[in-house]
Design a binder for these strands. Sequence first.
DNA 1: CGATATTAGTTCGACAGTCGAACAAAATTG
DNA 2: CAATTTTGTTCGACTGTCGAACTAATATCG
Lengths: 406, 406
Amino acid sequence: MRKIDTRDFRRATRTTSREINRRIVLNLVRDHQPVSRADIARRMSIGRGVVTSIIQDLIDEGTIYEGATGHAARGRRPTMLYVRTQDRLVVAVDIRFSRTFVMLSDFAGTQIALESFETAFDPHALVVDLTSRIRRLLDAHGARGRCEGVGLVVPGMVERLTGRVLLAPQLGWRDVDVRDALAKGVGLPVQIENAPMACALAQMWLGQRGNTTDNFVYVTVSDGVGAGIVLNGQLIRGETNSAGEFGHIPLDTNGPQCLCGARGCWEAYTSNQATLSRYLGRELVPLWGGAVPHPAGGLTIEDLISRARAGDARASEAIVATGHYLGVGIGGIVNALNPSQVFLGGEITGAWDMIQPAVRAGILERALTPAGRKTPVVPEQMGGFPRLRGATALVAAPHFAAPRVA
Amino acid sequence: MRKIDTRDFRRATRTTSREINRRIVLNLVRDHQPVSRADIARRMSIGRGVVTSIIQDLIDEGTIYEGATGHAARGRRPTMLYVRTQDRLVVAVDIRFSRTFVMLSDFAGTQIALESFETAFDPHALVVDLTSRIRRLLDAHGARGRCEGVGLVVPGMVERLTGRVLLAPQLGWRDVDVRDALAKGVGLPVQIENAPMACALAQMWLGQRGNTTDNFVYVTVSDGVGAGIVLNGQLIRGETNSAGEFGHIPLDTNGPQCLCGARGCWEAYTSNQATLSRYLGRELVPLWGGAVPHPAGGLTIEDLISRARAGDARASEAIVATGHYLGVGIGGIVNALNPSQVFLGGEITGAWDMIQPAVRAGILERALTPAGRKTPVVPEQMGGFPRLRGATALVAAPHFAAPRVA
DNA sequence: CGATATTAGTTCGACAGTCGAACAAAATTG
DNA sequence: CAATTTTGTTCGACTGTCGAACTAATATCG
């Protein structure tokens, strides 16, 4: 039940009904391919005549295509329909602290090529570097005409309207334009988004079928702890595109020093650095204090997991403690937003088997309702490149989303 | 950008365009009345002919009516249009710990009659009592045929589908049917919702024009602390209608004992009982321990505010401390959801002038972004009966909401 | 093998809207 | 009183859904 904003609405024209039904048909093909016209008509409780006409539109437009005829027990065989994704390409870019990843993928999120290089901290230098690399990548795969855009994921705050990066502490960026500069360089439209929101988009649009609902939170744990929120099938961006900053919800205002200046933030208990610091018995070291940070003397969270698996009890303890605190925070999120499930991404999911019981115990401590206590927590499968898939979704999703109306 | 749920969608029929435009016209009349057909046509960038036809529909249906002709500098005078709200009535019911309030109001939320009586704790007895009182109220105002429904607000968890109250600790209710029993009794449709969500609905649908956005959080502070969340013009209910339970987000896991069993919940710092306990130097006493609770020996939060105004420094301190903790929690909400504003309801807003600086200071401590730090906090004006207005909105809003499509 | 039944997909006229232009109505201005 | 301006209505063209009739293709049965 949405309220109509009388200062910003879209009225229906004589083609609105068709636009709506066209999108529904497209999504039905996407979710049930291979599928026949007659089957779509049944699923929509609509005449087959209308489906014929809509499908013709979509074929002319090039978004779907006819495949081989299927098989039927009796009667005429159906002609199967598919969404055209294989030759509609996207360049996905994930800018991270140490390295930048560039992936060429199709609309379904299938990886075609992947490369990475050291991140240049100067934004201008990075854009120049990226531009030439993307050009080379597209040419190498003869993908110039088939690429529909670039999706760009950054570890920081993005201003939605202008595409500027307002603050990216890990990169030392402050109010920097990357989107428009890159768009100009590669001659393709560029969509930009922060990492947790991109991960949520990836889960919503490219998640495994059946595993995705339209009411979930995607928690990302790495250098920072953030979340992408999806409610009613919509990514929640907030008023200034900064929704989902759960990382600095306090667990204990007398707790460990957080890099944000406050004490006892969720992030100060659960970020990769926090876990490493707990293991090393050190305080967290501010990242953007000036010098380039060298987290935990070269020890990474993956190293820590390896040590734990090799039998280092103190490593295990540090990791399991993080799991417990993750659960406590997730319990709070469950209370606040009552999602149907919570996805968990980040390097720590490599130790999911170790932390799962602690995570669930943490949720039990905090979740108020019986339904909330049962909320499933699903770890990201390793090697899934959620941020890169999110970058792909940034470009592909608008072609499949419900038309805006009223 | 919403994803279409292919298991649950609404396709467009040949009347969908009309339904959409009809709702837009209705809302334009609502927001700009008195308004002429020609003016609506301009605001919608549509031909006047279409408006004529849609307006005729709405007049026939009885949702709007023609008033006197307006004035124009030149040319034919416009006939002004108004939404029919005066003789479309709603019975709003607010069930609270000690008393139950019943209000007869029109669709615009205007109060016609208001009465209250002591809450019977037995659900069945309360329903019987309510039924006869509502019948009497309707008869006394000759409102039988003009009443379109009953809105019921309860202090507890409501199961959306069945209308059952799953848990209302203050009333001692657990899995109780009130909606259907009351509907049967009064012969009218009954809508039920929990208090914070109803307050948010009231703000969204019946808030002062210009003061309301479609991206806000309504925080209610009374015996418990909860919130109603509105994002993208939609009330966020969550998967099992329990979204908005921010009351048990921890501020400090070693903090004061909360009634929920955990320690240091936001509620344990900011509820009316918490404020009173801080003043009295006592621990919180569990409400649903068995015996009927007698909060703080008869001292109420209103009393405390009076004492503070009369110069009781310890009362002031207790209240200002609550304000500070409220700000800290609101800062967390601002980080999590990035609303454009936060509304604050509850008895404590009677001391808004005293707590405002502390609230803002609390937000400053926690809010991460410059935009977030500026998020306005708006106190409920006293005597506004937000819960009762929310009950009205429960019945009235569906007539004005955007049609569900795709 | 041919008639029948069944399912897929197309075509077409009826109906429900929007779109835009022409028209009638009602006011002001010169 | 004529010209002008604005409001509101009417009507034919266009775009869509709706439903029934039609064609196409296949399996089954006597």
